[in-house]
Design a protein around this nucleic acid. Structure first.
Lengths: 355, 355
DNA sequence: CTGAAAGCGCTAACAG
DNA sequence: CTGTTAGCGCTTTCAG
């Protein structure tokens, strides 16, 4: 393996010049730069990351902790994050936590020495632990707001409210909500949104779950949801909704004729045949990219300045998978609505309070 | 951050002794060992991985390249691999390739300096490139046999053959196969298995696809599959099969009354309500563990000896999602069968020819 | 069994 | 703009 000094000899300069040419091209004369580059290419030189890390104290790795790889929302965030990281010459270390506080903590502990920062997706650790970690390494949080940390979230509650309003408008009186991951910050927010609306006249909200947000659990919970006597089902996320719809199909219950279905993010719905499913669209790839960009900024800036987080706007697609309940006498699907932006009374994409 | 020397001072020994105590406890007197450990714990000492890597040339990282995170087969392999790696004090660097040769190559190139070896899941690179890579770093392949490399595969073709036989037995004459990832070694093997059976009297096999093995693609391909006039559908994997069943349910086609469905691995089926789905069960977590174990063995052994690969046996569960075709006059589901082991004429778990 | 000494390959002052 | 110098924190001979 060629070393810096080999390149230096080949290019007729010193090792420091090669180092500078390769990592800070602006600090070197253009002619020298070219000679160094030619020599490096010729020898197939690649820096030894360990040697660099030893002296700089930075490894070029970020740890990204996710509850679950199969969840398309997370998978999309990861993929986008990894792309941006690769562009900026950083690498992402993915660790799966299964949504368990213990595994999350273990992963943080294991990785702490090896990374320049953490991206935490839907972390379950306490606020105190998270802030504590941030004192040691830069931390960015996705899908949860943690005061004092840079957080990127999506305005799903705003979108959910839109769907909820639509259901009321259509005449539904019994809506079931299938709750997501136990202990999840996002699920609490979604439930809170529903609770706010439960005051509407003659409206009942039946909460079932919580369950891990997977296709299988959606299918398994379906019988329970139907047993509530509801005419519409809202699911914590699209994976659960898909599982519900799968089971409904298997049991011969038709959507939307017999029941309306909607979900809080549409990651699993893209490209499905038939009528598009009513859902709140969340820009998962953007979350991943924002997090990486913020982490790079923090890790580069020794001053401890912390970039502001954001709540990204969601988009609601109201479609014919929502219809009036059969009992309301308005048979047949409703005409598909257009796209609308998330929460109405709250400017989308507003910055998180950077306390 | 405490350094080796701090621990040494605290324990009243030299830095070399601390180093030995921590990485080769057998080389140190028990009393010393204990004192060193106490001191290290007390100071919260953690080795600097960069410094260690600089001198040993080993980073403790393995790269694991996967086509897709959402695929439950891969997700299960990854999770199990990561668990074993963590136990053995190794870390796994997951990189997503999307099944693209270009991204795969880029990932290998990017990671080569940073890892002690590669685990390649369903790689698409040519045999020559793979062997070439193996000359530089230890390589273990999952889900594809590459002559000259340690490969771990599952005997899915054997299981598929069982399902196929069963379909013939039930009187099916038109079977559709939904092919998996374009260019995939596994898909070629599965098709070959079907081709061998297509000779059966009066039997037609309709191949559709290839498509990326996702739920969505399964749903989208369903109309095409039905258009073949088949009475049974086999899918490359369970994600596709699930998508097919979803769409069948949506369109009011009943399984198995109207059509039989089976898949080549059952990762996505576990725990689903209703009749268990006929599928070939593949031990995905074992693949991940085997790969990590083999890689650790290779990376530790400088002699260049290469552990043997294996083909893990599959299990077929024949259930009532397979029934006689309606045209055969045998209405109603068939009694569920028991579990049977994969390929019959081939001892399961046989070693790969270690050429 | 333990200590002293010599770097691993690179970057970051510091002069020039 | 470039070369010289001095390590980063650890492991590993080599003696004792």
């Amino acid at each position: 393996m060629a070393r810096l000094e080999d390149v230096a000899r080949e290019a007729g300069v010193s090792a420091s010049t090669v180092s500078r040419a390769l990592s800070r091209p602006g600090m070197v004369a253009p002619a020298t730069l070219e000679r160094v580059r030619a020599a490096a290419d010729g020898l197939g030189f690649r820096v030894n990351p360990a040697a660099r890390a030893l002296i700089t104290g930075r490894t070029g790795f970020f740890a990204m902790l996710v509850p679950d790889l199969e969840n398309p929302f997370y998978a999309a965030s990861i993929a986008a994050a990894q792309d941006l990281a690769a562009q900026r010459e950083r690498r992402l270390l993915i660790a799966v936590t299964d949504g368990s506080a213990q595994r999350e903590q273990a992963a943080v502990h294991d990785l702490e020495e090896q990374v320049d920062g953490f991206i935490l997706l839907s972390p379950v650790a306490g606020t105190t632990e998270l802030k504590d970690l941030h004192r040691r390494k830069p931390v960015v949080v996705i899908n949860r707001k943690v005061p004092g940390l840079t957080s990127f979230t999506v305005d799903t509650p705003g979108g959910l409210a839109r769907i909820y309003d639509r259901l009321v408008e259509l005449g539904h009186t019994d809506v079931a909500y299938l709750a997501g991951p136990p202990g999840s910050w996002m699920d609490r927010r979604r439930r809170a949104t529903l609770a706010e609306h439960a005051g509407a006249p003659g409206l009942r909200v039946h909460i079932r779950g919580p369950v891990p947000p997977s296709f299988t659990e959606g299918a398994r919970a379906t019988a329970d949801l139907l047993a509530t006597g509801c005419t519409a089902i809202l699911a914590y996320n699209s994976l659960l909704a898909l599982g519900v719809m799968f089971e409904l199909g298997r049991c011969g219950v038709r959507v939307p004729h017999d029941i309306s279905v909607a979900a809080a993010d549409d990651m699993a719905f893209a490209g499905l045949p038939g009528e598009p499913i009513t859902a709140v669209h969340a820009p998962a790839p953007d979350l991943g990219r924002h997090a990486v960009a913020a982490l790079i900024e923090m890790a580069g800036d020794a001053s401890g300045r912390r970039p502001a987080g954001r709540t990204l706007p969601t988009t609601v697609r109201l479609t014919a998978t929502l219809a009036a309940p059969r009992s309301a006498g308005q048979a047949g699907p409703v005409t598909a609505g257009g796209e609308r932006t998330g929460r109405r009374d709250d400017p989308a994409g507003q910055a998180v309070d950077p306390r």
